[in-house]
């Protein structure tokens, strides 16, 4: 199981929690797992999310492997100047 930290405003879409667990070996499975377990997260996942894995931010990269005990933080998909 991967522990995923969510940002605060996703709390209401994740049963009031900002840390959830999903079964996932990579980023894509993580997104699928989140969508399945917490359908309320789907709109934000559609709009775009990035994943921070042990401090390194991935904007897409479905097949990024998530090692056991990794720190995984979900972030809004970033755009910039």
């Amino acid at each position: 199981m991967v522990k995923v930290q969510l940002w605060g405003s996703l709390r209401s879409a994740a049963d009031g929690r900002t840390e959830v667990e999903v079964e996932a070996k990579n980023f894509r499975q993580l997104l699928d797992g989140l969508r399945a377990a917490h359908p309320g997260l789907a709109p934000q996942i559609e709009r775009g999310v990035s994943m921070s894995l042990n401090g390194v931010i991935y904007r897409e990269a479905w097949f990024t492997e998530i090692p056991p005990d990794a720190e995984v933080v979900l972030m809004p998909y970033m755009t910039g100047g």
């Binding site: 930290q5 940002w7 921070s52 042990n54 401090g55 390194v56 931010i57 720190e71 933080v73 979900l74 972030m75």
Partner: peptide
């Protein structure tokens, strides 16, 4: 610094 949990979530390298 390295190891700080950043205000936006990830731990800084």
């Amino acid at each position: 610094k390295k190891g700080t949990k950043s205000s936006y979530g990830p731990t800084f390298p």
